[in-house]
Design a binder for these strands. Sequence first.
DNA 1: GACTCCCGCCATCGT
DNA 2: ACGATGGCGGGAGTC
Length: 359
Amino acid sequence: MAFLSLYNQDNVETIGLDDAATRLGVERRRIYDIVNVLEGVGVLARKAKNRYSWKGFGGVPKTLQQLREEGLRENFNTFNGNNYVKVSDDDEDEKISNPITSQNDKLNPSSVAKSSTASKTDNRKEKSLGLLTQNFVKLFLCSSVDLISLEEAAKILLGDAHDPSMMRTKVRRLYDIANVLSSMNFIEKTHHPETRKPAFRWLGTRGKSDNGSANTSVLNESKKRIFGTEITNTSFKRTKVVSTIDENSNQIQRRICKLLVKCEDLENEVDKSNFEQDLRHSSKNFQFGPFAPVTVHVSKFGATQNSTVKQVHDWECLASSYRPQYHNQALRDLFAHYVEAWKSWCSEVAGKNPIQLIS
DNA sequence: GACTCCCGCCATCGT
DNA sequence: ACGATGGCGGGAGTC
């Protein structure tokens, strides 16, 4: 969303929730959700009340690396097939970088006995979106499974507890997370081959192996003007909060929202046109959806990528054909901008190559 | 009828 | 005490 255009500036390093909510014309509550999952993958870091520091996409690889390690250390990789791991609630903690899970708790795996030390606070923390996000990601990072449906994920992350009610709730949350992650192209929505059931596939840090930095300029430039576009919806959004709203106005507002978002997208398309054609020559004809082809820019340098990236390309081809047309996708659209940030980050990180896609 | 996910109440947390 | 957070699930749109 506009979130990206607002904060991906090189100079931005701190984000105010109120500011974000206002400028984006979004309920504060929604910002919390977004921010939490972003923090989960290391794009943001909570600094203080109402303040988040923008770590950018550069922090993602490291975070993912950690998540993967933790996930393996735990049992995230053992759920293939039919026996789930029951990730229970406790688990994880990231050393220095990830405050979400951090802390000192831990140590006492599984079991319900968390006697002394917090149980209330922890309990709440355990259910946080941020943590759920990380666990969700671990699922991909630590297993060989390619596709995971939210229901499966919920089941796994829920451990045993097959309470249908809990499942529903968990799935709802996973939707929240999945939306943000797909907006950033960390994952992609598809369908199980046979089942036809919707599922998600990890795309992750594809392209980080990229060694170029040539396109950085283009990208930076493209994010400048997208800026003002989103300020438009601030007003009416606010109107809605006045509580004196009726169904109709609600509907209308929603539609307007969509329209605005659409417009924004169009503009973005124009902005992206530059590097898009750039990509075009090397990538096997992908028709890029409404979002930037983050996943393919590696090929920009024509040169052959390492095998890992290669195969990735393959299933991605498949995936691209499914590219669902999102309809009511306010959030996703808003996040579309992140794609660009991601792109530019990729070029920056260049030779770093922190995490090698788990085959 | 299954999927999505918007919306906002209200428990908790932070200060 | 009070504002900041954010879990949670009803239920309204979309396929």
